[in-house]
Write a protein that binds this DNA or RNA. Structure first.
Lengths: 237, 237
DNA sequence: TGGAAGCGAGAGCACTGCTCTCGTTTCCAT
DNA sequence: ATGGAAACGAGAGCAGTGCTCTCGCTTCCA
């Protein structure tokens, strides 16, 4: 029993390494349960059972089921965010229409591949659940990709815009978003982008949660049309 | 104890009247619990407690908690549907822009006044929950109001439209919707309407579920702008 | 008027999240 | 090297859940 910490693989002690491993195991199993049965069915005891642990042992690692859910939320946001970032980067950066379409398809594809995860982050908050600030950074990744796109869209091509100046509050909010993202998107472009962002997720929600039932199944053609329309609204067609 | 069924108020027997009353009571209490704490917290036992009944007694009236939730879902759809119908009827039928705005505001106002009900019907389905057909008719009421509007929008004014013909599948789906609603809306108008429908509910979901947090609070100006843009897309401005 | 059906109460089952205690193991500072 | 402190896992237990079953009682209807 000499030299427990000399091997190069883990400079940490036995405890720390075991803890890290168990945390990873819990996360892995929790994610598989989430993917299979949804957040509502996620059971601390079931996870413990699968790990061969007493349920009480898990509370050494997570203060509550909500905390576990919060971590799953963050991971879901990050997974979606990464998909979208990759999709945006995978196409010609200057072909803004294609870039927008790629982003939209990434969101929809990820949501269809991970419906319970999507429901967890964009469906009704599981309980009175006040989203902790931890989740916000990850949640913003998709928004960031879109705002970066908006910053590249030329303002003079916009097909859909209001004639007069924007409402003062709106200008402040949009400007703050620009500042937060470190870009300087035209506000008319940006506000259209925000609205198309809502449209994108409204569409995916409708598709996954059944509002298109008996009407737009499959919804592929409708989705492509919606993207086409959005590109036209931006003046990118 | 003579003449129990002769009074004009209730031709039915004692049993039937008591049953109807209790059903109404359960529904009333369930709705108040839903409005206060959300669907996830809805407890059959808590309802029974408030009624002074054993929890088992409620199972004479509802086969399961899910069945109770289903009824709440239907009631929520109907309530929202009625609000929207009233809003659409409250304005000049020929002022299509105002009619559209009135519909949108009705949806948003109802959702903000009844967030848990909105989450119940447009958030993630509570469980694996396959929406029974009972709910569909009620769910269609909002869609119907919008499709009726679309049928009145002149096709030649459309600002946002695709140049070529629509995808075949899409044409079939849109035509089926027309048939189902008994109208003959122009398909380019109709598809835009569907997409703006998704946008409307995407917006409200974002607002209620926190996606606009730290960015568009309040979201009034953004909402008004979105409606304005939609009206322009329809060519109604 | 008597059998059938509907009803409410209560006990009970299997499950949940979570807490507390207790003996053991690991760690870290002396 | 060793002893105290901290971390750990197991297990019992609590309060709560949805739901089932049985048992008397009441209402109904033929």
């Amino acid at each position: 029993m000499v030299d427990t910490d000399s091997p190069g693989n883990a400079p940490q002690g036995i405890r720390a390494r075991a803890r890290a491993e168990l945390l990873a195991d819990v996360s892995r199993i929790a994610r598989s349960h989430l993917a299979e049965s949804g957040a509502a069915q996620l059971s601390v005891r079931a996870i413990a059972r699968e790990l061969g642990l007493a349920s009480s042992a898990l509370y050494r690692y997570f203060p509550s089921r909500d905390a576990l859910l919060t971590q799953l939320i963050i991971e879901a946001y990050d997974e979606l965010g990464e998909s979208v970032e990759l999709a945006a980067a995978a196409v010609d950066r200057d072909d803004l229409g294609q870039r927008f379409g790629s982003i939209c398809h990434a969101v929809r594809d990820w949501a269809r591949a991970n419906p319970h995860e999507f429901a967890l982050i964009y469906g009704s908050p599981v309980i009175g659940y006040a989203a902790p600030d931890d989740t916000i950074a990850s949640a913003l990744r998709v928004a960031r990709v879109l705002i970066d796109l908006a910053a590249d869209v030329p303002a003079d091509g916009l097909v859909l815009r209001t004639p007069g100046p924007l409402n003062n509050t709106l200008v402040e909010q949009l400007t703050a978003a620009n500042v937060l993202a470190g870009v300087d998107a035209d506000l008319d472009v940006l506000v259209l982008g925000v609205e198309l962002w809502a449209q994108l997720f409204g569409f995916v929600s409708f598709e996954l949660f059944g509002s298109f039932k008996n009407a737009f199944e499959p919804a592929d053609a409708l989705f492509d049309h919606q993207i086409d329309m959005a590109i036209r609204a931006f003046g990118l067609a």
